[in-house]
Design a protein around this nucleic acid. Structure first.
Length: 340
DNA sequence: CATACGTGGCC
DNA sequence: TGGCCAAGTAT
C-alpha cells in the first residue's frame, strides 16, 4: 500500500477539486444547496442505486414533501408510494422515522456531526459522514463503494472491500487526505471520479484527472484492484400466484411487516416445489421471472378459488393503483392484462 | 460478522 | 443468459 507525503496530499486535493469545479456534476438537484434535509433524502435514495435511477424519484419526492416537517407529517402510505419501484423499501420507512426524530425529538434541530447523525434510522457510517461533510463541513471521509474502488487503486490497498472489517482500513487511509477546507466537495468529487473515469468496469484511467496519483495504473496492475470476493448466487424459488376475481376486483395479499417486500401488496403467493403441482391450471405457458439480489422467483399465474385469510383483500384497480406495489406485482398485473 | 434487503442496466 | 455492478444499513 502506498503512503502519500504531505506534499502529494496537497497536490492531490488541488488536482481533484480543480477537476470537480470544472467537470463535476454541479447541476445535480441535491447539490443546489446544502440543506441537510435535501442531502439526507438524496443520500438515502442513492444507497445502492445509481444517479440516473434516482433523479426522477428525487424530484417527485421533494416536490411532494419539500421539508423535513412535511415528511414527518405525511402518511406512511404516501412515502411508500413515492418510493415505489426504487427498491430496498426499509429505506423509505427509516427515512420517515429519521424525519420524525428530527422534528419531534430534536424540535427541528439537525444533528451536525457524523457521530450524532448516525443515531438517525437508516443512517450508517457512510451516510452520516456524507451529510456531516456536505451540510456541516465536518472533515470526515464518506467511504462508499466509489471511495473503496478509487482509493484501492490510487493507494494499492489490498483489503477485500466486500469485508466489513476493511472499512476502517479505508477510513484511516482516506482521513488524512480529505481536504479540510472543502470536505463535502472532496467526498463528492471522489464519487464523481468513481462513476466517471474510475469505474468498476472499463475504467478510463488514461484520461483520468488523477492518473498521476493512481499507483495501480502506473504499476500496470489496475485490473487487480479493488480486491472483492464474489457474492453468492440467488436461490431459485417457484411460486403459484392466485388470480381470484370478484366483481371486477382482484384478490391481493399483504406481505408481513418484516422481510422481503414488507407490507407491500401482491397476488397471494404460494411456494411450490414443482410445476407438476399446478400443471394444466396455469394461465401462462411461461412463468413470470423476477430476480432479487439473493432470490430468483419464477411465478406461475393460476386462476382459482382460495379461502380468505386475514391479510387478504379484494382490491379494485382504483384501490391498488393508489397503493405501493412492488415491481414484481406490476409484472404480474401486466402479464394478466396481456391475456385479456 | 455474514446475510437479508430491490431494481435496472450492461455485456 | 446469468453474473456483476450501483452514493449501504440493520441485524
Amino acid at each position: 500500500m502506498e503512503i502519500w507525503s504531505e506534499a502529494t496530499i496537497k497536490n492531490f486535493r488541488h488536482t481533484l477539486l480543480d477537476w470537480y469545479d470544472q467537470e463535476g456534476r454541479a447541476t445535480l438537484p441535491w447539490r443546489i444547496n446544502h440543506d441537510p434535509y435535501r442531502v439526507l433524502v438524496s443520500e438515502i435514495m442513492l444507497q445502492q442505486t445509481q444517479v440516473e435511477t434516482v433523479l426522477p424519484y428525487y424530484e417527485r419526492f421533494m416536490q411532494a414533501l419539500p421539508t423535513v416537517q412535511d415528511l414527518a407529517r405525511a402518511p406512511e402510505t404516501q412515502v411508500l408510494k413515492l418510493w415505489e419501484g426504487l427498491g430496498y423499501y426499509s429505506r423509505a420507512r427509516n427515512l420517515q422515522k429519521a424525519a420524525r426524530f428530527v422534528v419531534d425529538e430534536l424540535h427541528g434541530h439537525w444533528p451536525e456531526s457524523a457521530d450524532d447523525l448516525q443515531e438517525l434510522p437508516g443512517v450508517g457510517p457512510y451516510t452520516s459522514a456524507a451529510i456531516a461533510s456536505i451540510s456541516f463541513g465536518e472533515v470526515v471521509p464518506a467511504v462508499d463503494g466509489n471511495a473503496y474502488r478509487v482509493f484501492s487503486r490510487l493507494l494499492k490497498i489490498d483489503a477485500d472491500i466486500a469485508q466489513t472489517k476493511s472499512r476502517k482500513i479505508f477510513y484511516d487511509a482516506i482521513l488524512p487526505i480529505v481536504d479540510p477546507a472543502r470536505p463535502g466537495d472532496f467526498n463528492q468529487a471522489i464519487m464523481d471520479l468513481g462513476s466517471s473515469y474510475m469505474t468498476a468496469k472499463n475504467p478510463d484511467s488514461e484520461g483520468s484527472p488523477v492518473r498521476a496519483f493512481n499507483a495501480a495504473y502506473l504499476d500496470g496492475v489496475e485490473a487487480a484492484y479493488p480486491v472483492k470476493t464474489k457474492k453468492q448466487k440467488p436461490v431459485k424459488q417457484l411460486f403459484m400466484a392466485t388470480v381470484s376475481e370478484d366483481a371486477g376486483r382482484l384478490l391481493f395479499e399483504r406481505r408481513p411487516d418484516s422481510g422481503l417486500l414488507a407490507g407491500f401488496w401482491t397476488f397471494p403467493l404460494e411456494e411450490i416445489q414443482s410445476i407438476d403441482e399446478i400443471v394444466g391450471e396455469q394461465l401462462h405457458i411461461k412463468p413470470i421471472v423476477h430476480v432479487f439480489t439473493h432470490r430468483r422467483w419464477e411465478i406461475w399465474l393460476v386462476k382459482r378459488a382460495i379461502s380468505l385469510a386475514e391479510n387478504y383483500d379484494y382490491l379494485s384497480p382504483a384501490d391498488w393503483q393508489q397503493r405501493a406495489l412492488p415491481t414484481v406485482q406490476h409484472k404480474l398485473l401486466d402479464a394478466l392484462e396481456d391475456l385479456q
